[in-house]
Amino acid sequence: MTATLPTVLEEILGEIAATCGEASEVPDELLLALKFIFGPSAIQALDLVDRRSVTRVSSPSGRTIYQVLGSSGKVYVCFASCHYCSCPAFAFSVLRKSDSLLCKHLLATYLSLATGLCQDLSVSNEQLSGLLLAEEDQEQA
């Protein structure tokens, strides 16, 4: 992931990644920091991480995206290089109202990467192209 994150979040993710290597448990103060910055979506995101909801999908071309299985059972697509999620909360709270930094799916993606709890899936180039487009299909449906 190369997306630019707020410095605070980068620091927290870095510490989580460092501590998880040894204990596979996120220390309380880091959880608290997450809660502090993200409010209720921090817990929802941690829940998604606990359920291993984040999958890194890659194709032979090297292109990568992340799929997050939402609590409603819907699958959302998160991009690897910039903040984008196909969920409605992202469109509303992040894009339209600018009162959230990230949606819970994006946060869950960053947390899964930091804790090493990402599932991996390989697909063909054509399938990955379809996933990159998927959001548009949902809109038309």
């Binding site: 995206i65 991009f79 690897a80 290089s81 910039c82 903040h83 984008y84 196909s86 409605p88 992202f90 469109a91 894009l95 339209r96 990159l132 959001e135 548009e136 809109e139």
Partner: peptide, 15 residues
């Protein structure tokens, strides 16, 4: 007119 479609295009370009 959607913010989501606009973000999708921009994010796809950046990605």
């Amino acid at each position: 007119s959607g913010a989501q479609a606009c973000a999708h295009l921009a994010a796809l370009l950046v990605d």
